[in-house]
Design a protein around this nucleic acid. Structure first.
Lengths: 195, 195
DNA sequence: GTCTATACACCGATAGAC
DNA sequence: GTCTATCGGTGTATAGAC
């Protein structure tokens, strides 16, 4: 039997507040600064309380990414079933929570098995959604033979959005304008307005 | 006047060894584990010695990225002046030191001004080299009007290589094969063998 | 150039009171 | 559900001996 120490539910108000605080700390100060004491301080409670809601900092970290993942997949699904899925998907990718937060989780995933598993699941799931949406659009509109395979386009879209966001968070803009322009005209060709 | 505590040169054998150890720790355990104690332990010396070669851990971190940056730019420059620059540049990007190491520095850059400045300089410099190389190749070969602008291609190349490496380090392969195939045939068209 | 020794702060995690 | 108090461990950085 596992330990039965914990009594508070993660879905409670305080549990959610702690995950919110964790996200905020990750964004602003990085995973090295994500400690139970900082979270408690952030909420005006005592450090001990964090261990009432989470078995360990590791669990807190995993729960944090799980929640983020659920949130992002929901946005993606909603985009997929919209009128102009490609445009909406791109908006989700480019306007995703924060390049900094993602950077932290990417770095964490390389050495935290729990986070890694969640990150992998998230990437595969969102890619599946994107590829399906692309294939559907490419079926609908005529000239889809001129385009690259849906798998390639999905991968490119994700990669470009991530890179644009990452560089923007560093203050870099070089080449971003022509890249964005190219993407916009590309989407316009694939999924024209009033389609 | 700044402090004059330090006496050892970073370019010395021990200084270099410490930077090597730092890289290794970053790769394997992440920036939260990069401590003066771990570096010393890694080399079989005492922790105090790290502060003989570096004023602070912050300085060590900056020096570490600076060295990495110099190394990568040298590889890139050599690729640019080779027989098939595009193919060589792609090889440098895809075979770059390690997706994990880069993930760590990316995360660090978001909150360490010294590292951030170095990272920004590195990105801008390598982009400049890539764009110049692309333009040159596109001039040389005829059908360059069919291609996207050099700025866009450079950005796409970097983004795709980074994403491929990042996912590979997580064990993900989904869509990688068609993406790599597309890139290979693209380069072949732009820079054919025996050109 | 490398060491011992030490200061002081912060970490995760726990026991147990209220 | 939240608290006080405390454990052993680890972090940066320094003083000063050899």
């Amino acid at each position: 039997m596992a330990s039965t120490r914990r009594m508070g539910s993660i879905d409670s108000e305080m549990g959610e507040a702690m995950l919110n605080a964790a996200e905020e700390i990750l964004r602003q100060h990085g995973y090295a600064a994500l400690t139970s004491r900082k979270i408690a301080e952030h909420l005006g409670v005592k450090q001990r309380l964090v261990y009432y809601y989470f078995r360990s900092m590791d669990e807190l970290l995993r729960e944090s990414f799980t929640r983020l993942s659920i949130r992002e997949l929901a946005r993606l699904k909603s985009a997929v079933s919209s009128d102009r899925p490609l445009h909406e998907i791109w908006d989700v990718c480019i306007d995703t929570s924060d390049a900094r937060l993602i950077s932290e989780f990417m770095a964490l995933a390389n050495r935290n098995e729990g986070v890694k598993a969640e990150v992998v699941t998230f990437i595969l799931e969102s890619r599946k959604l994107q590829v399906a949406a692309l294939k559907k659009v490419m079926m609908r509109y005529a000239s889809h033979e001129n385009f690259l395979p849906a798998e390639v386009l999905a991968f490119m879209g994700t990669s470009l959005a991530l890179a644009l966001n990452r560089e923007a968070s560093l203050g870099i803009r070089k080449c971003h304008a022509p890249v964005k322009k190219m993407i916009a005209s590309f989407f316009e060709a694939m999924e024209p307005e009033e389609g």
